[in-house]
Every structure is written in structure tokens, then in C-alpha cells.
């Protein structure tokens, strides 16, 4: 087993008296594709924010690449669930993606030709090469999410955190994104938050079923009882494909 990239020990988070995470412990290893599933309000985004150092845990300890999260940020790429910026901000897609290179720069950061080449490659990867000069305000929901993925990729992170990156993306592009993540996991560790229990089980190596507490399972050992318990809602599993390659599929709880 490779060394842990992310280590969580007894992490609890309470926000304004509400318990969001309780006693969570897990390790995510190098080049692992780790999934997090669970219902809304189950603590998935909070867990990512703890790993990013944006949310301080009430108790417990978190390390990323063996250090405090704040000290490891330059190695981390992040795709948020929603774009937190104003759509009328005067900026092109290319310039917005270019900001993903900032983590690789020192004080008084200025971009060079290499940065711009990496941006063009990333936009090509997510199928947006032709939209580089477009204004971000004119993008559809799916294009916006692909732009956020491109922004995270240009930083060439060693750890990539994605918070429901395919929520507004059509099925064809969703497959492309998951295939891309499959390729990327050779070069980086990936932690993916999703509701897409069917697809995620096909791609990830392990899954945390998170609803305040977490049950960590390898993808072969996800059961419908586990998912039903996590979502507190009946989840049906359908196994299909050749017997040795049957992924787990669940309904969108």
C-alpha cells in the first residue's frame, strides 16, 4: 500500500450547533480514485472543505501530504460544486482557467507562454478549445462545470478534489469526464464527491458512504443495504455486464 496522501483522524465538525461530521477517520492513498457518496447535508462538501483547509474541524486531525492542509494547497486542485463567482464578471474563459496556474506561482505572480499553452491543452481536454475567448457569462451550466475542471487541471495538482463535477453535464460529456478522471488517476490522487452511485462504483477504487459518519468500502463490497442506510432511503442495486466486471448501480437517491 502506498503512503497516505490524505489522513483524517477522528474528525468532527459542528457548525452553529449542528453536527455535520462525527468521528470520521480515513486514509486516501497515492494514485487512488476515492469516491464519497451520501445524501444532501450528509457532510460531503464539508469533508472536502476540511481537506482544503477552508473549514477547521471541531476536533480531530487532518493532514494532506503529511502536512497541515494550508501548507499543502499548492499541490491540490479543486472543482467546486457551484461557481461562486458572478456571471457578469468581465473575464474570458481562457483568463478564468489561467487562474488555476496561480498556485504554481510566487509573489507578484505573472503568467508566461507556458501557462497559456497549458490552459489551451486543458480546454482541449474538456472539449472547450473553441470557447477560450468567450465571456464566462455566456456559458451553459455544463460548460461552466467543464471550465472549472479545466481550471483545476492547469495547476497540475497531485491531489484533485471534485465536488459533484458532473451534476449539470449531459451523459456523453459525463462519460468523457469520467474517462478523463480514469486517465488522470495514474498521475494524481482523486477524491470525488457525487450522487451518481451507479457511475462512481464503476470508476473508483473505494467509496465512503457518508452521512455524518462514514462507512468505507471497496467498490466490490458496496451493498444496497449500505447505500440505503447512508441515504436513509431504499436503494435498488442492479448488476449488469460480464460477471467478473459487474459494477454496482443504484438509483439516484
Amino acid at each position: 500500500m502506498t503512503s497516505p496522501v490524505v489522513t483524517l483522524k477522528g474528525i468532527s465538525v459542528s457548525i452553529e450547533g449542528a453536527k455535520i461530521l462525527e468521528g470520521l477517520s480515513l486514509d486516501v492513498h497515492e494514485n487512488e480514485f476515492f469516491g464519497i457518496v451520501g445524501p444532501n447535508g450528509g457532510g460531503k462538501t464539508t469533508l472536502l472543505r476540511v481537506i482544503l483547509g477552508l473549514q477547521k474541524p471541531t476536533s480531530g486531525r487532518v493532514t494532506v501530504f503529511g502536512k497541515e492542509p494550508l501548507l499543502s494547497r499548492k499541490k491540490v486542485g479543486y472543482v467546486p460544486q457551484h461557481a461562486s463567482f458572478s456571471r457578469d464578471f468581465p473575464i474570458s474563459v481562457g483568463d478564468a482557467v489561467l487562474m488555476g496556474r496561480l498556485s504554481r506561482k510566487k509573489l507578484f505572480r505573472h503568467y508566461n507562454q507556458e501557462d497559456r499553452t497549458v490552459v489551451e491543452e486543458a480546454l482541449q481536454t474538456v472539449g472547450m478549445a473553441g470557447l477560450k475567448e468567450h465571456h464566462v457569462g455566456g456559458l451553459s451550466g455544463g460548460e461552466l462545470q467543464r471550465m472549472l475542471i479545466a481550471r483545476a487541471l492547469v495547476g497540475q495538482p497531485a491531489l484533485l478534489l471534485l465536488d459533484e463535477p458532473t451534476a449539470s453535464i449531459d451523459p456523453v460529456m459525463k462519460t468523457t469526464i469520467y474517462d478523463l478522471l480514469d486517465t488522470l488517476k495514474d498521475d494524481m490522487t482523486i477524491i470525488l464527491v457525487t450522487h451518481d452511485t451507479g457511475t462512481v462504483s464503476k470508476h473508483v477504487s473505494r467509496v465512503a458512504c457518508l452521512n455524518c459518519r462514514a462507512a468505507i468500502k471497496t467498490r466490490e463490497h458496496i451493498t444496497h443495504e449500505e447505500l440505503s442506510d447512508t441515504y436513509r432511503y431504499p436503494v435498488t442495486m442492479v448488476k449488469h455486464g460480464p460477471p467478473d466486471q459487474r459494477p454496482v448501480t443504484g438509483n439516484d437517491a
Binding site: L54, L102, S103
Partner: peptide, 22 residues
């Protein structure tokens, strides 16, 4: 001029700028 890109990043998406180490 010195902080142009940093100001742009924090004005556009403050949370992402913070994650980027700014």
C-alpha cells in the same frame, strides 16, 4: 500593477484564490 493577478483572482473567485494559496 504588482498584485494585478492576485486582485483579479480574489475579485473573481475568492474561495478558489484562497485554495490556490493566495
Amino acid at each position: 500593477a504588482l498584485f494585478f493577478n492576485e486582485f483579479l483572482a480574489t475579485s473573481f473567485d475568492e474561495e478558489y484564490a484562497e485554495v490556490s494559496g493566495i
